[in-house]
Design a protein around this nucleic acid. Sequence first.
DNA 1: CTCATTTGACCAGC
DNA 2: GCTGGTCAAATGAG
Length: 300
Amino acid sequence: MENSLVDSVIREMEQAFELTTKLQSLVELGNYSDTQKESARMVSRELLQTCNATLSMLKSRRTNVKIEYGSQYQLAPREIPIRTDRRTHYPRKVVTATPYSDGHQWRKYGEKKINGCIFPRSYYRCTYSEDQRCEAKKQVQQQDRGVPSLFLVIYKEEHTCKPMAVEGCRSFEQLQLPGCGEYTCNTSFPLTQVTASTTPPPVDSFSLRFDDSEDSLMRTAVRSITEGTIAWRRNDKGSVSCSELASADLEFLESTEPLHPSLSAVHDVDDEDHSPRSLGLDTDFFGFDLDDMELFGTPY
DNA sequence: CTCATTTGACCAGC
DNA sequence: GCTGGTCAAATGAG
């Protein structure tokens, strides 16, 4: 695809991304039943997922295309820093509600009843263990307690394979919240997915919402962003990307389990009309790292 | 027919 | 001998 056309499609998709986020906010604020809100949430998540997947594909294509000097849509390819996993120590223990959707493909090779546990332990190895000599393995064991069901996942050995795209899987750039635990976060967000095609309004605060699937309550933690904690980058086309948010201490206003699978990271902003709106990034947590007390998930 | 899962057998470490 | 991890034949789904 021609580079300028790719850029045009990217801008349209970014617009769709932003509009979906806006729609999501409107639904949350609107006078709808819980069922209607849940349905809307599901649809908007699907939309954001689709936008994100399309954007990822387009951007990866664009970076491979030589940008012609003087092109109408000349844009420096946005650098999307490839985050290396700091959790390189193995085995790595994770408690998650979604043990089977971690972005990799696994093949089960055994199951064992473990002493003192109600549920058996399942043993998986990477689907590409033979094809690509990938040594990655994991053990999955449902916890005896926990509603909804929680699973202890022990990862052994790092993936060395290059997995094929899995239908329905989200992009795997990780959104990490180092130091999470006791409902207090010291965040360092690689918010590379948050973009806005319009001139950015000033950012006033940053909030995290845990979408509690148990009682459908939205619990919010809000903390003002202090000087120097956020880096909004504008380019000469007026688009903006938030690349990093460092050292914003967050404390949750209400006690809630940190293990629920959905989290929204929302930047509350005021635009020129001083009407609040949000630039959002939703994340499905698929794990809670017991070793590092670290939440991680995938933005979409 | 192919491939993934299931499940009992086997093995190593303690 | 017990326990946890892996193997491999049987089974099932598509």
